[in-house]
Amino acid sequence: MKTLNIEATNKSPRILFDPSKKLFEMKGNSRPENVRDFYYPIIETLRNYFDSMAKDQKLITDSEEKPFKFNFKLDYFNSSSAKFISDILVIVKDYYEKGIQFKVYWYFEDGDDDMKEVGEDFADMISFPFNYIMVQR
């Protein structure tokens, strides 16, 4: 079971994917120099994991007890990163339709209406409800 644990830099977010905790998390800023090199392996890991999960009925049944949590705690991301964040969210939608349970938590800072709005855009795009969490800093 492949996990991801990528430390944040000032240009790329912290990425954590731990299937044993049913957790995927992105945190920080995203404008990587090579956006494809950064996001392709993440997307491949997620697709491979949920693909094998979708083929295993027992795992799907287990997942109904505790949904996979996808946390987005982003401060800033550029337009190329937005495309890849949308690809990650499309994975959520695709595998939700195959029976896997998910919860998406979209964090935004108090007063950062743009970050909340972009979360609403993503939710609308994949037709999947997000939980919005406002944080004070």
């Binding site: 956006v35 937005a82 495309k83 890849f84 855009d121 993503f122 795009m125």
Partner: peptide, 26 residues
Amino acid sequence: VNQLYKDSLSNAEISEKGGAGLGLIV
């Protein structure tokens, strides 16, 4: 513009240079 942004997110393809074609819309 907001609708175009949402539609473009779904359809965008990343170019060799790493652009998603979303910059002007943003």
